[in-house]
Design a protein around this nucleic acid. Structure first.
Lengths: 341, 341
DNA sequence: CCGCGTTAGTAATACGTATAACTTCGAGCG
DNA sequence: CGCTCGAAGTTATACGTATTACTAACGCGG
C-alpha cells in the first residue's frame, strides 16, 4: 500500500493524500475530499513507508540510547523514561546495549544500522560509544550527544544529566552516622566511571568530617558474588571491624549482606548495609535494603528532553536530579548504641 | 556525505561507488579503481544512508522484538541472544518493550516507527502484539512472525520457540520428591500465558502421580511482594502445611523465602523452595535458590534463526530447548527425613 | 468583460541508493 | 579490414514520500 494506491482509491492525486494525512490541508483541500482520503487510507490500512519519509525529510525522528547492559534493571528504567518522552514527541528510540565481555567482534556501527538524529549514552558504555563515534573525534559521529552518568562539560556533548550522587552519598553516611555508626567501610565498584569517583570522594569527605569517624575501602566488580567477597575483605581486614557498609549499588549491597551472615554476624544488629539505586532487588532480599533511590526513569526522560531541545536548536538544559534515601531493614543502631539514645 | 560525494572525490560515477562498496564489482571495475573508491570512502567517512537503501531495496534488514518488560532480566537475555544472531547475518534488531500498566495511550504502532522485515514476540506481550498487528488478522500486520513462550501452531505464526517447561517442572518436582517431600504448594503466576498453563498442568500431573502426594496452589502477580503474600497464604491455609514451595519464577521464589521466614520458619530446614529462570537474583538471595535454568539467550537466538529462515523462504524450524535444574541452598530433605536416608 | 483574489487541487521534483541497460574502447580473429 | 567480444565504466531509472510551484475554476468589483 503506497500513498498512490490510496490516491487512486480516493480519486485524487498522491500529493493530496500526503497533504491530508500529514494534516497540512487546511484551506487547500475541501472537507469532503479530506474525508474521502482518510476513509480510503483507513480501508486500505495504509501505513506510510518510513524509509521514504525520512529520505525525503532528511530526518529519521529516531534516537539511539547506548547503555552498558540491559540485564541491569537500572538501565531498563532509564530506557522506559526516555522512550516515554520520545513517544510523546513522535520520536522512536532504538537501544544499543553494549556487549559485555564478548570482545570487540560485534558490529561496531549500530549507528549505521538505523538512520539516527541523535544519541544518548551512559558513560558506563564508553567503549561502545567510542566504537560508534569512530575516530571522528568528539560527539557521536557528528550527531548531537547527551551524556548520562558523566562528568558535566565533556567535549562535543550537548548536555549532561546526572542524579545528584553527592547528595545521595551524604544522605547515606548521614543516616548511618545518626544511628551512631563511626567505623565505615566503602564497598566500591571497580569501574572507571565519574559516577563512582563522586561516590568515593564524597564518602571520604563525609566520613572524614565525622568526629571519630574511620573508613576502609574495598573495590569489587559490579555483581553480587564479587560484592560479597569485597565485603568479607572489608569485615576481616586489620583494625577494628566496621559496623556500617556503604555499597555503591544494590547488587553489591546484597552481596555485602551475604558476607555479613557468612561471617556469623547479623544485619542490621551487628552490621548495617546501604546500597544505591533502589532496584526491585532491594526488596527481594531479607532484610530489605536501605538504599539511595536514583530516579532512573526521570534520568532517561530528562536526557531525552535535552536531546530533543538540542535537535530543535534550543539550548539543551543539563540537569542534576534529586535523589532520596529509602530506609528499610538493613540499617539499624550501631552496636552498643541505644535506639533514640 | 553521499555516495555521489565519494564518487566525485574518487573521480568516478556514483554507480561505480555503489558497485564497489556493495562488493559487486568483480569483472566490472578494475582493481585500481576499486581501491581508489574504497580509499575515498574511508577518507570521507562515508556511511550509506539506510533510509535510501531500504527504500530502493524494499527491505530494511531489521527485525522487531516484542517483549513484555525489560526490567525482567529474562527478556534482557532473550534480547542479547537474538541480537547476536541478527548481527551475524547483518540484521538489526529493534526492541519494543510493551509498556506495563500505563494503559493503551502509548504509540500503538512501533511497526510504523521503523521499516521492518519481521517480528519476534513473546506471548507475554500479547497486548502489544495485538496493537501492532491491528485488526489485520493473523501474523504481525502481514510480516513473518515467530512466537516465543507460546503454544505451538498459532495462526499466522512461522515458528514457535519454547524452553522445555514440562521437563523443567518434572525436574523440580522430581528433585523435591527425591528429598522426601510429599506435601507441595504451587506458587503460580496469575498470568494468562501458555507457559504458565504448562507449569500448572505438569505440576498437577507429577504430584498426582506421587504416592501420598498432595498439593495446593496460590496464584500471584509476577513480583516479589505478591509472591511473598501468595506463599504466606499457601503456608497458612487449611490442611497440613506444605514442606515444598514450587514457584513459577525466581521472583516468586524470592518472595516465598521471605514468607517462610516471616512465619518463623527456615529455608530449607522447614520448607524447601524452587524457582524458574535462574536469574542473577537466584544467587543474590540467602540461601541461594534451587531453580530450573531456562536458556533465555538460546531462546532469543533460536527465534531469530527461525525468523531469518522464514525470511529466506526456507521452512522455519520450531524448537523446544533443553532446560536443567540448578540445585542450590533453598532445597533440602523434607522435615523428618534423614539426608541419604 | 477584464483583472484579481480565493479555493481546490495537481504536476513536478528532490531525497540517496542499487541495479538494469547501455556505451566506449581495445584486442583478437577470420 | 570488418566483426565480435570482454572489460570497464556510465547513464538512467525506480523506490515512496513531502512540498513547492503551478493551474483551473469561480466569484466579483470596476
Amino acid at each position: 500500500m503506497t500513498s498512490r494506491d490510496v490516491a487512486r482509491a480516493a480519486g485524487v492525486s498522491q500529493a493530496t493524500v500526503s497533504l491530508v494525512l500529514g494534516d497540512k490541508w487546511r484551506g487547500r483541500v475541501s472537507e469532503r475530499t479530506a474525508g474521502a482520503v482518510r476513509a480510503a487510507a483507513q480501508r486500505l490500512e495504509y501505513r506510510p513507508n518510513l524509509a521514504a519519509r525520512s529520505l525525503r525529510l532528511g530526518t529519521a525522528r529516531t534516537v539511539l540510547l547506548v547503555v552498558p547492559a540491559l540485564t541491569n534493571e537500572y538501565f531498563a528504567r532509564v530506557y522506559a523514561g526516555a522512550e516515554r518522552v520520545a513517544a510523546e514527541h513522535g520520536f522512536g528510540l532504538v537501544l544499543y546495549p553494549s556487549p559485555e565481555g564478548v570482545g570487540p567482534a560485534r558490529d561496531p556501527f549500530p549507528s549505521a544500522r538505523a538512520a539516527l538524529d541523535g544519541v544518548i549514552a551512559s558513560s558506563m558504555a564508553a567503549g561502545a560509544l567510542r566504537a560508534i563515534s569512530g575516530a571522528a573525534g568528539p560527539g557521536a559521529g557528528g550527531l548531537p550527544l547527551v551524556m548520562l552518568d558523566s562528568e558535566p562539560g565533556g567535549p562535543g556533548t550537548a548536555a549532561t544529566v546526572n542524579p545528584d550522587l553527592a547528595h545521595g552519598m551524604r544522605l547515606a553516611v548521614g543516616h548511618l552516622a545518626g544511628l551512631g555508626h563511626r567505623r565505615f567501610a566503602h564497598v566500591a565498584a571497580a569501574v572507571d566511571s565519574w559516577t563512582f569517583r563522586v561516590r568515593r570522594e564524597v564518602f571520604d569527605a563525609e566520613v572524614g568530617a565525622l568526629a571519630g569517624g574511620s573508613a576502609v575501602r574495598e573495590t569489587s566488580g559490579l555483581d553480587v558474588a564479587r560484592g560479597r567477597d569485597a565485603a568479607v575483605r572489608a569485615l576481616t581486614g586489620p583494625g577494628p571491624r566496621p559496623t556500617a557498609l556503604v555499597c555503591d549499588d544494590d547488587l553489591l549491597a546484597a552481596g555485602a549482606c551475604k558476607a555479613v551472615r557468612r561471617l556469623g554476624l547479623r544485619v542490621p544488629q551487628d552490621v548495617s548495609v546501604t546500597g544505591f539505586d533502589d532496584l526491585s532487588l532491594a526488596t527481594a532480599v531479607d532484610p530489605e535494603l536501605t538504599t539511595v533511590r536514583l530516579p532512573a526513569g526521570e534520568a532517561g526522560a530528562a536526557g531525552m528532553r535535552a536531546l530533543l531541545a538540542a535537535l530543535a536548536g534550543e539550548p539543551a538544559p543539563s540537569a542534576e536530579l534529586p535523589v532520596s534515601l529509602v530506609v528499610r531493614g538493613s540499617t539499624g543502631p550501631a552496636p552498643g548504641v541505644r535506639p533514640n539514645g
